[in-house]
Design a protein around this nucleic acid. Structure first.
Lengths: 190, 190
DNA sequence: TCAGCATACTCAAAAAATTGACTAGTCGCG
DNA sequence: CGCGACTAGTCAATTTTTTGAGTATGCTGA
């Protein structure tokens, strides 16, 4: 019962349809939560049945109509309860870490390549986060925005995403270069 | 089919029983993977049936006997295949991020407290990682160990854990202080 | 013009993770 | 001597997540 809170938090910012939420959960919100479209549709249906969100049909021209959802008062109350409850520990799962853990026992070649790719992907995401942050704060200086800006929540979580991506990039490039140096040294010995 | 690789990677370092693995997955390995004891027992049973690990009974004095597991050749081959495959994207799930995202719409009090607690927990983990890293490299300098040390995999993943915890601590303290300042400013206005 | 992609969603089945309840022996503490 | 904590597991039920397969419509570029 935790995806629901991620959905509610995402809907606080602006109303979304399931499809739009799915996009968000695949890129931006994925920063701190991840879910497939099917889960979101299911969750939205449940939330609506429980009265935590309200859906309304939006007629569109040139594309299928959609149902967008708004958080209700009960939804905000539910988030309030969630905020007061003890948080579950952070949950990280990363294939690359597992591979690096095993890197001295299996061939490191593929792992090095994947580290490079991950570092490149991180660079892209860093740029995206920086652009998003700049857009959120508009023409205000960061300090100013942090003190007086609206929608500080999304800004703060973006800052975290940015820091994580930077850390990821550094670790990936550092680790790749260590593994490469060791492969080279090993090759020399022969 | 991914927990199995985390288990295999953990067993590469030294043989473990299900119980010991459970401990590791609750603290150390939890750095990059998380699993409950039940899952580990189930997974070990499956891995043994498939011949990827071999179990043997260890008779103990003064406590129940245990079964410890070793990775077999087939297990290493399976890890090799896994290392070559495309990695799934990193998967992060964090209640606190969701709460911060919603912090400007629900009471920030609890969230601030939880951020402080998380920062304190991070400090503890940072110390633990530093101690573990020092133990792994023994009397070697870090550069030296990275170039020539054995078991470089665990060392590299620990470095990542350390960096993540440091980032966590910084973000938590920074975010808590931003939210506190805003609460204070808001109180003044009244 | 027509294939492919994007929007917008649904249903069902399988796999994985979580929750909760148990067994059973040992150790130390009061 | 009994109580609680630690070691070392097992079993079953439930919930969550993932995988896979569909339904429609409309726009765009080769």
């Amino acid at each position: 019962m935790a995806l629901r809170h991620a959905v509610l938090a995402a809907l606080l910012d602006s109303d979304f349809s399931g499809y739009q939420l799915a996009k968000a959960f695949d890129v931006g919100v994925a920063n701190f939560w991840h879910a497939l479209p099917q889960q979101l549709y299911t969750e939205l249906a449940k939330l609506e049945k429980e009265g935590l969100v309200a859906g309304r049909e939006v007629v569109q021209h040139g594309r299928p109509n959609k149902r967008v959802f708004t958080v209700t008062g009960a939804g905000v109350a539910e988030l309030e309860r969630f905020a007061a409850a003890e948080p579950k520990p952070t949950f990280i799962r990363d294939d690359l870490l597992v591979k690096v853990q095993a890197a001295d026992r299996v061939g490191a070649g593929h792992v090095v390549r994947q580290l490079d790719e991950r570092a490149a992907a991180a660079t892209t995401r860093i740029a995206a986060f920086e652009a998003l942050l700049a857009r959120l704060r508009g023409d205000q200086a960061e300090d100013d925005y942090l003190r007086h800006g609206t929608r500080i929540g999304p800004y703060l979580t973006c800052l975290r995403g940015l820091a994580l991506e930077r850390e990821t990039r550094e670790w990936c490039t550092g680790t790749a270069s260590v593994l490469r140096a060791r492969e080279a040294a090993h090759a020399e010995q022969i």
